[in-house]
């Protein structure tokens, strides 16, 4: 019964906002701005160990994350990206409140004639937090990420198509530290009404386990130097006004290695406008 409830919960929460930091498939016109601010709560009291066995954690993690993202259409060919997390983490006696990593990136077009096919390069810049603190918000190391993304329809406001999907894949390399990673996602969207859509999908974060010089096995932590996890996500989004949208979503880690068995819920407000 307990397992059934877990399965049902996992299905119901067939997850969230695209929390995985992989390439986005959308290019903005020159002069367009996009802001997204999200608030999420993540919790879990189990984790997958190094053998991918689900075990009890020594404490329940309670993390609150405020994710701030801004994108700017610098030109037809390039969109500039900046995002920053403000993080509160707590698990047992370990806690942290402060900035997470700053990410600065650039996105370009794989197909110069249409939207929805992009490449993206992002620099990950730690903001000075301790890289040994068990409750640290990231790896505390510099990193760089490069990837591509695809949206199955590029035609803006193409109301004839009620379904689309977006997918992306990136490689993340760390300087002097954690294992390099593959990050990927697939999201299926169904449009409902004029501006709303429901989406469901999966995120994957897979480590290459290549000479990671940081500890590989820190149980009780949700963010490890060498971990794998598959997350399922479910999301609803609709328009609030010409410029503003909201979305609510949830995600659940459905499989992992050295990863927390976390549940996450979040709400996002975003604005799109021209300068």
């Amino acid at each position: 019964m307990h397992d059934l409830k877990r399965v049902l919960t996992a299905l119901f929460l067939f997850l969230l906002t695209p929390a995985v930091s992989a390439a986005s498939p959308w290019m903005w016109s020159e002069g367009e701005m996009y802001y997204s601010g999200s608030l999420s709560y993540t919790t879990g009291d189990k984790n997958w160990n190094e053998n991918s066995n689900l075990v009890d954690s020594s404490c329940r993690s309670r993390n609150v994350n405020s994710h701030q993202l801004i994108e700017y259409g610098y030109s037809y060919y390039h969109t500039l990206i900046a995002n920053l997390d403000i993080v509160s983490k707590d698990c047992g006696g370990d806690n942290y409140l402060g900035l997470g990593d700053l990410r600065l990136g650039i996105r370009g077009r794989l197909d110069p004639f249409r939207n929805g096919r992009t490449w993206e390069v992002t620099a990950i810049i730690p903001t000075g937090y301790s890289d040994t603190d068990p409750a640290r918000p990231g790896n505390g190391k510099f990193g760089i990420e490069g990837g591509v993304a695809y949206l199955s329809r590029g035609e803006y406001r193409d109301s004839a198509k009620r379904w689309d999907y977006l997918t992306g894949a990136s490689l993340r390399f760390w300087v002097d530290g954690p294992a390099d990673q593959f990050i990927g996602y697939f999201t299926l969207r169904r449009y409902i009404g004029r501006h709303g859509y429901i989406s469901a999908g999966v995120n994957a974060e897979i480590s290459f386990q290549n000479e990671a010089r940081l500890p590989k096995n820190l149980s009780d932590q949700t963010q490890l130097a060498d971990f794998d996890k598959i997350t399922a996500k479910l999301n609803w989004s609709d328009r609030l006004s010409d410029e503003w949208r909201y979305s609510i979503g949830a995600s659940h880690v459905v499989w992992g290695r050295n990863a927390g068995h976390d549940l996450k819920i979040g709400i996002t407000f975003s604005r799109h406008w021209r300068l």
């Binding site: 016109s29 020159e30 367009e32 030109s75 037809y76 110069p112 249409r114 590029g154 803006y156």
Partner: peptide, 18 residues
């Protein structure tokens, strides 16, 4: 040359200039 092709072939909602 790329801009000259893009301006006629890009998606209609794009408002970029060249």
């Amino acid at each position: 040359e790329l801009d000259a092709n893009v301006i006629f072939r890009k998606e209609y909602n794009d408002e970029s200039s060249f």
